[in-house]
């Protein structure tokens, strides 16, 4: 008995040693890999820095010399424009933040409440409801019927809710979450809780959810990004200018400029109209401002992020 353990130990030690040797990165390889990742990081970060620099560049300078990381003349005029452009931008900012926070919380709740029963073996209609969710991933009703549902069946057009409700349930996130529940919370844990006298709700909120923080954080981040970056719902449903969110405001400006500059607009006033739209640097200033809060969401979710993603992805 003892002998076999000894042999096993040395065997494992040997294996570990050889493995470490085999896995060791050579100095040149190390430098190369580091270099590769440094380049990757620069490629990711450089555009953001460029946008920020452009937003601080003098407008005239932009027209004459084009984009540059090191402009000759700096100016804060673009931000001046953004700040004095009335409350439009700040209001849109507020709408975005409100919708993102409210939407993420509600969406997480709906997704978890749907996913959790499906993860339980004892739920009888598991297959039906899985299919029900899965079906929506393959077939959609089309734009106009979808539009009618939110304007006539549930009349929430031109309210804050229209930017939240359509994204509340996401079948794909629900499936990730279901797999997460299944793999993280073993049936025996639930059973033991039951034996100790906990009801279903208590099991879910006190035992299951805290165990699945990583999954919640991952899906939460997806939802946050989804809500923050959305301009499609306001594009279709919002006609009231007070309810525009920041992404839509940006989309509207950029899209207008692109459209007018493409020459598709066949009217003689297009050039005049184009000139009235915000200048290059002002647009960049809006872009910089819109990055703002979402950048703070990343570190918050970071610690759970990697774990959550791999679990969801492997068994998805």
């Amino acid at each position: 008995m003892n002998g076999t353990v000894e042999i096993e130990k040395t065997g494992i030690l040997k294996m570990l040693k050889s493995r470490r040797l085999g896995n060791k990165v050579s100095p040149t390889g190390n430098i190369l890999i580091n270099l590769l990742f440094i380049i990757c990081s620069i490629i990711c970060i450089a555009p953001i820095i460029l946008i920020t620099v452009i937003s601080f560049t003098d407008e005239k300078e932009l027209l004459v010399n084009g984009y540059s990381f090191f402009p000759e003349k700096y100016s804060v005029k673009a931000y001046d424009y953004v700040i004095t452009a009335g409350d439009t931008i700040w209001r849109a900012y507020g709408v975005s933040i409100l919708v993102t926070i409210l939407g993420t919380i509600l969406s997480l709740m709906v997704i978890c409440l749907y996913a959790y029963p499906l993860s339980r073996q004892s739920f009888k209609y598991k297959n039906f409801f899985s299919f029900f969710a899965y079906f929506t991933m393959i077939f959609g009703g089309g734009l106009v019927p979808w539009y009618m549902v939110y304007t006539q069946l549930i009349p929430i057009k031109n309210t804050l809710w229209i930017m939240i409700v359509p994204y509340l349930m996401n079948a794909w996130y629900m499936m990730i979450m279901r797999t997460f529940f299944k793999t993280t919370v073993h049936e025996s844990i639930i059973e033991s809780a039951k034996i100790d006298g906990a009801g279903e709700f208590r099991i879910f909120f006190v035992i299951v959810l805290p165990l699945c923080k990583a999954g919640l954080a991952t899906i939460g981040l997806f939802c946050t990004l989804g809500y923050w970056n959305d301009w499609w719902l306001p594009l279709v449903f919002i006609t009231e200018h007070k309810l525009y969110n920041i992404q839509y405001l940006m989309y509207q400006t950029l899209n207008s400029i692109q459209y007018l500059a493409s020459g598709s607009a066949q009217f003689s006033e297009s050039s005049k109209v184009l000139a009235d739209l915000p200048s290059e640097s002002a647009r960049m200033a809006i872009a910089v401002i819109s990055i703002g809060p979402i950048i703070f969401a990343y570190p918050f979710f970071q610690k759970y992020f990697v774990k959550g993603l791999t679990i969801g992805a492997v068994k998805g």
């Binding site: 539009y147 009618m148 006539q152 594009l235 279709v236 509207q252 899209n255 207008s256 692109q258 459209y259």
Partner: peptide, 18 residues
């Protein structure tokens, strides 16, 4: 008032179709 291009087309065309 809605923006040029997609923005206006999208809003008006959906509303008309509905």
């Amino acid at each position: 008032v809605f923006g040029w291009g997609d923005d206006y087309d999208q809003k008006v065309n959906t509303a008309l179709a509905a």
